[in-house]
C-alpha cells in the first residue's frame, strides 16, 4: 500500500502534460491500429461487439470483470496517472497496454502483476521514433495473464537510464535484464548477476544504441569485398 502513495508523486515540472494527454497526442507513441480499442472506463459496450466470442455474454462478463480488476490493480499500484488500454483481436485475444507514469512505479506495478498471477513473458527495450529529439527511450515489460498479454511501458531518459531489477519478483527476468544491459545503455539496479550474456567480450558495449552509422563498428565491408570478387570474376569470364 505504501507503494501506492509513493507513486503518485510524479514530477509535474518535468512533464507539463499528463501521461494520458501525452499518449493521446501521440507524443509518447503512435496509437496502435486495432480491432477494438477499449479503455478501462467504457468496457462493456465495446466488448460486446466482438466477433467469435465462444461463450457469448457470459464470457463478456468475465472479460469485463477481468479488465476492470487489472486496471484497478495497476492504478492502485502505479498511481492515478497510469494509462491503460485494451485491444481485442479477431479471435478474442486480449492485449493490454499500460503506460506507467514514471520509472519508480515499475516495481509496485510489477508486484501487482505478480499478485494477479501474471507471468513475465518478455522485456523489450527500444529507442522509439523521435526518441533522440525528445531525449527519451522506452522499455516494455510484457506479461502473460492466462492468455492475455499485459504490457507495462516505462518511459526513461535517453541518457543515464536506470530501472530497478524485476528479477527478485520474477526469477525468469534474469536473462532478459542481462541481455538488456549489454545491448542498450541502461542500468538495471539491483540485478543479482550483471555479467554479459550473449555478447562476446571483444564486441563494444550496447550495439543497439548504434543503429546509425552502422558501418563504423561492424564488418559491413564484408559484403562489398565479396561482391567485388563476384563481379570481378564475372568480367573475367565475359
Amino acid at each position: 500500500m505504501s507503494d501506492c502513495i509513493k507513486l503518485t508523486n510524479d514530477d509535474p515540472g518535468k512533464n507539463p502534460l499528463s501521461l494520458r494527454e501525452r499518449v493521446a497526442a501521440g507524443r509518447v507513441r503512435a496509437l496502435p491500429r486495432s480491432e477494438e480499442l477499449v479503455t478501462a472506463d467504457a468496457l462493456t459496450p465495446a466488448l460486446s461487439r466482438g466477433e467469435r466470442v465462444p461463450e457469448g455474454e457470459v464470457r463478456d462478463g468475465i472479460l469485463t470483470g477481468f479488465i476492470t480488476k487489472v486496471a484497478a490493480a495497476m492504478t492502485c499500484a502505479a498511481g492515478e496517472e497510469t494509462v491503460i488500454e485494451w485491444r481485442r483481436d479477431r479471435k478474442g485475444v486480449l492485449t493490454g497496454w499500460c503506460w506507467l507514469p514514471c520509472g519508480e512505479s515499475l516495481l509496485p506495478a510489477a508486484r501487482a502483476v505478480a499478485e494477479l498471477k501474471g507471468r513475465l513473458a518478455m522485456v523489450t527495450a527500444y529507442l522509439p521514433e523521435r526518441g533522440k529529439e525528445k531525449g527519451e527511450r522506452e522499455i516494455a515489460y510484457h506479461f502473460d495473464l492466462d492468455g492475455a498479454t499485459l504490457t507495462l511501458t516505462v518511459i526513461l531518459p535517453l541518457q543515464w537510464a536506470r530501472v530497478p531489477s524485476l528479477t527478485p519478483i520474477f526469477r525468469n527476468c534474469d536473462w532478459q535484464e542481462r541481455e538488456l544491459m549489454e545491448l542498450y545503455d541502461v542500468q538495471v539496479v539491483g540485478h543479482p548477476d550483471p555479467r554479459r550474456l550473449f555478447l562476446d567480450h571483444s564486441l563494444p558495449h550496447a550495439p543497439f544504441e548504434r543503429l546509425v552509422p552502422y558501418s563504423t563498428f561492424t564488418n559491413a565491408a564484408t559484403g562489398k569485398a565479396l561482391w567485388d570478387k563476384v563481379l570481378a570474376g564475372e568480367r573475367e569470364d565475359a
Binding site: L199, T218, N219, A220, G223
Partner: peptide, 15 residues
C-alpha cells in the same frame, strides 16, 4: 561461404 542471410551483422565474423 558468404554469411548468407547473416552477412553484415556485428556478431558475425565470416566468411
Amino acid at each position: 561461404v558468404s554469411g548468407g542471410v547473416f552477412r553484415g551483422s556485428y556478431a558475425v565474423d565470416g566468411p
